[in-house]
Lab assay of single mutants.
Amino acid sequence: TYYTVKSGDTLNKIAAQYGVSVANLRSWSGISGDLIFVGQKLIVKKG
């Protein structure tokens, strides 16, 4: 599943919304830090 980052989103908010960890969200999407951008597509795998 892809999630497109919206204004005001954080990795914590997105992870909580999908019931996954921030570490997994980073790993799946190839992100090393906490910086995400509006319009960026993140990969989300539901448990």
Rank of each mutant, 00 (worst) to 15 (best):
T1C: 15
T1Y: 14
T1P: 10
T1W: 15
T1S: 12
T1R: 12
Y2E: 12
Y2K: 07
Y2Q: 09
Y2M: 10
Y2L: 10
Y2W: 13
Y2D: 07
Y2P: 07
Y2H: 10
Y3R: 01
Y3N: 01
Y3Q: 02
Y3A: 03
Y3T: 03
Y3K: 01
Y3W: 04
Y3F: 03
Y3D: 02
Y3H: 13
T4E: 11
T4C: 10
T4G: 03
T4R: 07
T4K: 07
T4H: 08
T4A: 06
T4L: 09
T4I: 15
T4S: 07
V5K: 00
V5N: 01
V5L: 02
V5R: 00
V5S: 02
V5Q: 01
V5T: 04
V5F: 04
V5I: 06
K6T: 09
K6V: 11
K6I: 09
K6M: 10
K6G: 07
K6D: 05
K6R: 10
S7K: 13
S7Q: 14
S7D: 14
S7F: 14
S7Y: 13
S7N: 11
S7W: 12
G8N: 06
G8W: 04
G8Y: 05
G8S: 05
G8K: 04
G8C: 06
G8M: 05
G8A: 05
G8L: 04
G8F: 05
G8E: 06
G8P: 02
G8T: 05
G8D: 07
D9Q: 01
D9G: 01
D9H: 01
D9P: 00
D9N: 01
D9K: 00
D9T: 00
D9M: 02
D9F: 01
T10A: 04
T10F: 04
T10H: 04
T10I: 04
T10N: 08
T10L: 04
T10K: 04
T10C: 06
L11Y: 04
L11D: 00
L11C: 04
L11T: 02
L11F: 06
L11P: 02
L11A: 02
L11K: 00
L11Q: 01
L11S: 00
N12T: 14
N12S: 14
N12D: 15
N12P: 14
K13G: 13
K13T: 15
K13V: 09
K13E: 11
K13I: 10
K13C: 11
K13L: 11
K13W: 10
K13H: 10
I14Y: 00
I14R: 00
I14E: 00
I14G: 00
I14K: 00
I14D: 00
I14V: 08
I14W: 01
I14Q: 00
I14P: 00
I14L: 07
I14N: 00
I14A: 00
A15F: 02
A15V: 02
A15E: 01
A15I: 02
A15K: 00
A15D: 00
A15P: 00
A15T: 02
A15S: 08
A15M: 02
A15C: 06
A15Q: 01
A15N: 00
A15Y: 01
A16V: 11
A16P: 02
A16I: 11
A16W: 10
A16E: 15
A16N: 11
A16S: 11
A16R: 11
A16G: 09
A16Q: 13
A16K: 12
Q17T: 11
Q17R: 13
Q17S: 10
Q17D: 11
Q17I: 13
Q17W: 12
Y18H: 13
Y18P: 00
Y18S: 05
Y18N: 07
Y18Q: 08
Y18M: 10
Y18L: 14
Y18T: 07
Y18D: 00
Y18V: 09
G19Y: 06
G19V: 04
G19T: 05
G19K: 10
G19A: 08
G19R: 09
G19C: 10
G19S: 09
G19F: 07
G19I: 03
G19D: 09
G19Q: 10
G19N: 11
V20T: 09
V20S: 04
V20H: 02
V20M: 08
V20A: 05
V20Y: 03
V20P: 01
S21L: 07
S21N: 07
S21P: 07
S21Q: 06
S21V: 04
S21W: 03
S21C: 08
S21A: 07
S21T: 14
S21K: 06
S21H: 05
S21E: 08
V22E: 09
V22F: 02
V22L: 09
V22T: 08
V22M: 08
V22R: 03
V22P: 08
V22A: 08
A23S: 11
A23I: 10
A23C: 11
A23K: 09
A23P: 08
A23F: 06
A23W: 06
A23Q: 12
A23N: 10
A23T: 10
A23G: 09
N24S: 11
N24T: 12
N24E: 15
N24C: 15
N24P: 00
N24Q: 15
N24A: 11
N24H: 10
N24R: 08
N24G: 06
L25Y: 00
L25D: 01
L25M: 06
L25I: 15
L25W: 00
L25V: 09
L25G: 00
L25T: 00
L25K: 00
L25H: 00
L25A: 00
R26Y: 05
R26I: 14
R26N: 05
R26L: 13
R26C: 13
R26D: 02
R26T: 09
R26F: 05
R26W: 04
S27C: 13
S27Q: 14
S27I: 13
S27L: 15
S27G: 09
S27T: 12
S27H: 14
S27E: 15
S27F: 12
W28R: 03
W28K: 02
W28T: 06
W28A: 07
W28H: 04
W28Y: 06
W28Q: 06
W28C: 04
W28M: 08
W28N: 06
S29I: 05
S29A: 08
S29P: 03
S29W: 05
S29R: 01
S29V: 05
S29E: 03
S29F: 05
S29C: 05
G30W: 05
G30I: 05
G30E: 10
G30P: 04
G30R: 07
G30V: 06
G30K: 09
I31H: 04
I31P: 02
I31F: 09
I31A: 04
I31R: 00
I31K: 02
I31Y: 04
I31N: 03
I31E: 03
S32F: 10
S32H: 12
S32V: 15
S32T: 14
S32W: 09
S32I: 14
S32N: 11
S32E: 15
S32L: 11
S32G: 09
S32P: 08
G33S: 11
G33L: 08
G33D: 11
G33P: 03
G33Y: 06
G33W: 05
G33K: 06
G33F: 07
G33E: 09
G33Q: 08
D34P: 06
D34K: 06
D34Q: 08
D34R: 06
D34E: 10
D34I: 07
D34T: 08
D34S: 09
D34G: 08
L35R: 12
L35A: 13
L35E: 15
L35G: 11
L35D: 15
L35T: 14
L35S: 13
L35I: 14
I36S: 02
I36D: 02
I36R: 00
I36W: 03
I36Q: 02
I36Y: 03
I36E: 02
I36G: 01
F37A: 09
F37H: 11
F37M: 09
F37C: 13
F37I: 10
F37V: 11
F37Y: 14
V38M: 07
V38R: 05
V38G: 04
V38W: 04
V38L: 08
V38P: 14
V38C: 08
V38N: 06
V38A: 10
G39E: 04
G39L: 03
G39T: 03
G39S: 04
G39Q: 02
G39R: 02
G39N: 06
G39W: 04
G39C: 05
G39H: 04
G39F: 04
Q40N: 04
Q40F: 05
Q40I: 05
Q40H: 04
Q40M: 11
Q40D: 08
Q40T: 06
Q40Y: 03
K41C: 14
K41N: 09
K41T: 12
K41E: 10
K41Q: 14
K41L: 14
K41G: 06
K41H: 10
K41Y: 07
K41A: 08
L42D: 00
L42N: 01
L42R: 01
L42G: 01
L42H: 01
L42F: 02
L42I: 12
L42E: 01
L42Y: 01
L42V: 09
L42S: 00
I43T: 10
I43A: 08
I43R: 10
I43D: 04
I43M: 12
I43F: 10
I43K: 10
I43L: 15
I43W: 11
V44A: 03
V44N: 02
V44F: 06
V44H: 02
V44Q: 02
V44G: 02
V44L: 09
V44C: 07
V44P: 03
V44Y: 04
V44R: 01
V44E: 01
K45R: 13
K45Y: 14
K45Q: 13
K45A: 13
K45N: 12
K45M: 13
K45L: 12
K45I: 11
K45C: 15
K45V: 11
K45E: 11
K46G: 14
K46A: 14
K46E: 13
K46Q: 15
K46V: 15
K46T: 14
K46S: 13
K46H: 13
K46D: 13
K46C: 14
G47E: 13
G47M: 12
G47K: 11
G47N: 12
G47W: 11
G47H: 13
G47L: 13
G47Y: 12
G47D: 14
G47Q: 13
